[in-house]
């Protein structure tokens, strides 16, 4: 067996364990609701009194009513939906819906993705500029860096509504406020990574440039910037994931109009757990794709630069 094959089986095994655990968890999580439904449908459940059942542990109920186990995986509004229910919901809201439909996950995913990308671009640009300033100016190092750190200690969930309200009051709405929140989250890893990257050339490298009487800008373009590339890509991968979180959080206070955040919020309003979980998975898949895409670009760029073998 070659390594790729082994890795494939390892991934599959982990996935299988998670799925088995998930199905098992659905049984105690959903048993009370299922028994209430079954009782209404005329089945005999143990104990028969709803009040007694409420005081019993979920595991006791499962032991007494093992006939009801399959039903815990088929509820309309389960506490915890089973994997196949989420999969079916995702299938129906992606492949089987028109992209323009308000119930299409692809439509909502695109709304979130566009804000994510805009925010990521703004955040990355800002992060790189700040890092360049911090590396070249002692004043900026002392004055900007503490604020950049403080900015990340404020919970974004508290800050997001304020950003939206403030921007709305000056007439800005739609994608921009969400992108601003995305940028707010994604600039930080870029600043930290780029500062480290731009400072990564050692004393010998800097001395070498001094022996050529190189100017500061020559030092930047010929040494510091290329040397920072591996650091930049690591930061970008963290930044794009943070951007997605920012865009989703930015969709929550706007009244749940569109986007994956809106799907999450609407799902929790109406107890649509299956919808919540499918939106969560859509966000996770989107994040994985974005990070994967950046990883691909990273490999290509570094290989072209001769920095990866």
């Amino acid at each position: 067996m070659n390594d790729g094959f082994k890795a494939f089986w390892a991934v599959l095994t982990v996935l299988a364990v998670i799925v088995v655990f998930w199905y098992a968890a659905c049984i105690p999580m959903n048993i009370k609701g299922v028994l209430t439904e079954q009782e209404r449908a005329g089945a005999e459940v143990q104990p028969p009194s709803a009040k007694d059942r409420r005081d019993m542990s979920e595991f006791g109920l499962v032991l007494n009513n093992s006939f009801a186990i399959p039903a815990t995986w088929e509820q309309d509004r389960p506490r915890l939906p089973a994997p196949h229910q989420v999969a079916v919901e995702m299938w129906e809201t992606t492949v089987q819906k028109k992209i323009t439909s308000k119930r299409s996950l692809i439509y909502h995913g695109w709304v979130t993705l566009s804000a994510t990308i805009l925010g990521f671009v703004i955040g990355t640009g800002l992060g790189v500029l700040l890092a360049v300033g911090i590396v070249h100016s002692r004043v900026m190092d002392l004055s900007v860096m503490p604020w950049a750190i403080v900015s990340q200690t404020i919970p974004i969930i508290a800050l997001a509504p304020m950003i939206i309200v403030v921007l709305y009051s000056v007439g800005i709405q739609g994608i921009i406020p969400k992108a601003v929140i995305s940028a707010y989250l994604s600039f930080f890893p870029v600043v930290v990574g780029m500062v480290k990257g731009l400072r990564s050339p050692d004393a010998m490298q800097l001395d070498l440039l001094r022996t050529y009487s190189a100017s500061r800008s020559q030092g930047f373009w010929k040494l510091r910037l290329p040397a920072s590339m591996p650091y930049l890509f690591t930061s970008l991968k963290i930044g794009i994931a943070a951007s997605l979180v920012g865009a989703i959080v930015g969709e929550l206070p706007t009244g749940a109009v569109a986007g994956l955040g809106a799907r999450l919020l609407a799902g929790s309003y109406y107890g649509q757990t299956v919808q919540i979980w499918s939106a969560l998975f859509a966000a996770a898949i989107l994040a994985a794709c974005l990070v994967g895409l950046l990883g691909l670009v990273e490999r290509k760029v570094l290989k072209r630069m001769g920095m990866a073998q």
Binding site: M204, D207, L208, L223
Partner: peptide, 12 residues
């Protein structure tokens, strides 16, 4: 021209 202990060639 100065030669350091490590070659210090730019990997890129």
């Amino acid at each position: 021209g100065y030669v350091f202990q490590a070659a210090g060639l730019y990997p890129w």
